[in-house]
């Protein structure tokens, strides 16, 4: 009995020491992450990976490394870590978890299309974990929204809601907003060009670029007035020398500006609309 009492704790101590030595660097790295010292944490995760290349939990260490790199704003090391984590993962569920972190990383770095691709790959071979699938559908939906694929996003969001009555109701409300793309403010580039062709600067003002519009109006107005004076006084040579080059420079430039501002306005409006939908979706997930 005494022998048993002495041997068992020692055996446990022996095993726990061995386990400690395996995960010591990961523990230190985790502590650094909690303290916000991501740089030191990344080094310790690397150290563990180097010292224990055959560790069975290496996929999880590389995932932690990828998350630390992502939070430190290091895209390439994060992608490399997630790629290695996928390679080292031992089960479809582990692989799916890493892919979700990878997709989130693409979203964080404003790469929604890449994020969607990663999720499509995951959804093509479902790991059999309903919670992971739910997250994958949510990320794919957000990726579609952020890349302005208004027709693709509802499908993923409905899949995310699944059979949960409350989520279904909220999702349908959200989808109704997404489907009504006419609520996104829009400025027609053609209309902007025509406006600026008739009254220089008007197209820019239509797109909300008041300063550029007024500047264009003043400059082109003065130029046209000057040309009119020359026509009135029959100064044809002066008109040709001064007027025509000026038309090509300022008037045509005014048309180009009108088109560019309309396109920029539409891009901003789409981004703002997508951000608002994603914000509402995030609130639903709280």
């Amino acid at each position: 009995m005494i022998r048993f009492v002495l041997v068992v704790p020692l055996l446990l101590a022996c095993l726990s020491q061995a386990a400690w030595s395996q995960s010591a660097y990961v523990d230190i790295a985790d502590r650094y992450v909690r303290e916000g010292n991501l740089d030191a944490a990344i080094t310790e995760y690397y150290r563990h990976a180097y010292l224990h290349p055959d560790d069975e939990s290496l996929s999880s260490v590389y995932t932690k490394l990828g998350i630390a790199c992502r939070d430190a704003g290091l895209l390439q090391p994060a992608l490399r870590a997630f790629s290695t984590a996928i390679e080292k993962s031992r089960s479809p569920i582990d692989r799916a978890r890493v892919r979700i972190e990878l997709a989130l990383t693409h979203l964080v770095f404003d790469q929604p299309l890449q994020s969607q691709l990663v999720m499509m790959r995951l959804l093509a071979s479902p790991p059999g974990d309903s919670l992971l699938m739910m997250r994958a559908h949510a990320i794919a939906g957000v990726a579609c929204l952020l890349s302005h694929q208004w027709n693709e996003a509802p499908g993923y969001l409905r899949q995310w809601a699944g059979g949960r009555p409350e989520a279904v109701a909220q999702t349908e409300q959200l989808i109704a907003i997404i489907s009504d793309t006419s609520s996104i403010p829009h400025r027609s580039p053609t209309a902007a060009i025509i406006m600026s062709a008739i009254i220089p600067g008007l197209g820019q003002i239509y797109c909300g670029e008041y300063l550029d519009g007024l500047n264009s109006m003043a400059l082109n107005g003065a130029m046209i007035f000057n040309m009119y004076s020359q026509i009135e006084q029959s100064r044809w040579v002066a008109l040709g020398l001064v007027g025509l080059p000026l038309v090509s420079r300022y008037y045509m430039g005014n048309l180009e500006h009108a088109e560019r501002y309309a396109n920029e306005f539409n891009e901003r409006a789409r981004r703002s609309f997508a951000a608002e939908i994603v914000r509402r979706f995030a609130e639903m997930n709280r």
């Binding site: 041997v7 020692l10 101590a13 022996c14 020491q17 061995a18 400690w20």
Partner: peptide, 16 residues
């Protein structure tokens, strides 16, 4: 028992 304990203690100390 003493020998076993000695071995285990050494085993416990060595890995770390």
């Amino acid at each position: 028992s003493a020998a076993l304990i000695a071995v285990l203690m050494a085993c416990a100390a060595v890995p770390a």
